Simulated assay, not measured.
Amino acid sequence: MSAGAGPQTASEYIVHHLTPLSVGHGFWSVHLDTLLFGGGLGALFAWLFYKAAANATSDVPGPLQNFCEILVEFVDGQVKDSFHGHNPLIAPLALTIFVWVWLWNFMDLIPVDLLPALASVFGVHYLRVVPSTDLNSTFALSISVLFLVYYYSIKVKGGSGFAHEVLGHPFGIKAAPANLLLRIVEDLAKPISLALRLFGNMYAGELIFILIALLPWWVQPLLSWPWAVFHILVITLQAFIFMTLTIVYLSMAHEDH
């Protein structure tokens, strides 16, 4: 609950749940809850897969090894279908993005009042627990993908080859200004679409859970459980889309014409 006394109105309740724990102001503000949960979930992913690899056996595998092997085979299949170059980094990167984004999204299934109420006991009055509902995190991830696209485009094609692709496609080198303008629009659209698609879907899902929490207690299970079951599909689909588009963009970067 908020630091102020007295009951909250519906609008105050919604605004309270959508306010991040941050320091600083404006552009220079840092969302501590996004860093905490995003970093913590990343560490959880790394620890689980490290434990599965360390305890891997050729005998009857345990549940964790089975689960990790299923994920690795699934992602490897997607990379083989969508990536047409040769780069040993792509499959681990795709696996990291899929699992990490899925864990981000999964936090949306935790009851909206549970972790904020626990945090308030320790004097923390604002806490957003879903990193993918923060534009800072979704844009940071999508911009990182864009940097990788530029890096491999230059590495594979060379500086002159990359410049020729930017200035000469699709209308030929004589239309370089128009080609450059189209390339700028295309490159801006990639991180924006990646970030906003993930953010928009997860923000809407979180808002629906908050609205359900405003209803009488006896109505909440009738709506929250069906929405949670449907939302499992949403969070998985959003992680899959982010991973697949990352693979496709990097595959395009490796195409040397």
Rank of each mutant, 00 (worst) to 15 (best):
M1E: 09
I14A: 05
I14V: 15
H16C: 01
P20Q: 03
G24Q: 09
G24K: 04
G26H: 07
F27P: 08
S29G: 08
L32F: 05
L36S: 02
F37C: 01
F45M: 04
A46V: 13
K51N: 03
K51E: 11
A52V: 14
N55D: 15
A56E: 12
T57A: 03
S58W: 13
P61C: 10
G62W: 14
L64K: 07
L64I: 13
N66Q: 14
C68Y: 13
E69G: 09
E69F: 10
I70Q: 07
I70L: 11
V72Y: 10
V75T: 13
G77I: 14
H86V: 14
N87Q: 04
P88L: 03
P88G: 04
L89F: 09
L89C: 01
I90P: 03
A91D: 03
A94E: 10
L95E: 05
L95M: 10
T96W: 12
F98K: 04
V101C: 02
L103E: 00
L103G: 01
N105Y: 07
F106D: 00
I110P: 07
V112S: 05
V112I: 15
L114F: 15
A117P: 00
G123D: 12
G123M: 10
V124N: 02
H125V: 09
Y126F: 14
T133R: 11
T133V: 15
N136V: 14
N136F: 14
T138L: 07
T138P: 09
T138N: 06
F139S: 03
L141K: 01
S142G: 04
I143Y: 14
V145W: 01
L146R: 04
L148H: 02
L148Q: 03
V149Y: 12
Y151R: 00
S153H: 02
S153M: 08
S153G: 15
I154Y: 02
I154H: 02
G158I: 01
G159S: 07
A163C: 09
E165I: 04
G168R: 05
F171N: 02
I173W: 12
I173C: 02
A175K: 12
A175L: 10
A176P: 09
A176F: 14
N179G: 10
L180F: 15
L180H: 02
L181H: 04
I184V: 15
L188G: 01
P191H: 06
L194M: 14
L196F: 14
R197D: 11
L198R: 01
N201L: 14
Y203F: 15
A204T: 14
L207W: 13
I208C: 03
I208V: 15
F209P: 03
F209C: 06
F209W: 05
L215N: 04
V219D: 00
Q220W: 06
L223K: 03
S224W: 12
P226Q: 10
A228P: 12
V229C: 06
H231L: 09
H231E: 09
L233C: 11
L233F: 15
I235A: 02
Q238G: 00
A239L: 10
F240T: 10
M243A: 04
T246L: 11
I247G: 05
Y249R: 01
S251W: 06
A253P: 11
A253Q: 03
H254Y: 13
H254D: 10
D256T: 05
H257K: 07
